[in-house]
């Protein structure tokens, strides 16, 4: 089973990358872009035999301890099918 951890800069944290990408989109002529934030996606493949609730708790702990830095980032865990 696959857990997808989506990590994004917290809204109150300046994201210079997102800002630069936003400017680039505007210069390409895309109007109406009000904000861009650049983060990362981390896919973690887990043993299918793991209990789902246990796996969810484990991925949550992984995100808190290493994959995201709560000082500057928020994260969400998704469970893509297939």
């Amino acid at each position: 089973m696959r857990a997808r951890v989506v990590v994004l800069p917290r809204p109150d944290i300046l994201d210079p990358q997102g800002r630069a990408v936003g400017h680039a989109l505007a210069s390409l002529g895309f109007g109406g872009v009000q904000g861009v934030r650049v983060g990362r996606v981390i896919d973690v493949d887990l043993d299918d035999r793991l209990d789902r609730a246990l796996a969810a708790a484990q991925v949550d702990a992984m995100a808190r301890e290493l994959l995201a830095n709560p000082v500057i980032e928020d994260f969400a865990v998704e469970w893509p099918a297939g």
Partner: peptide, 10 residues
């Protein structure tokens, strides 16, 4: 405390 992120000028 805190964290160090990308320089503003990139």
């Amino acid at each position: 405390p805190g964290a160090l992120v990308r320089n503003v000028g990139l």
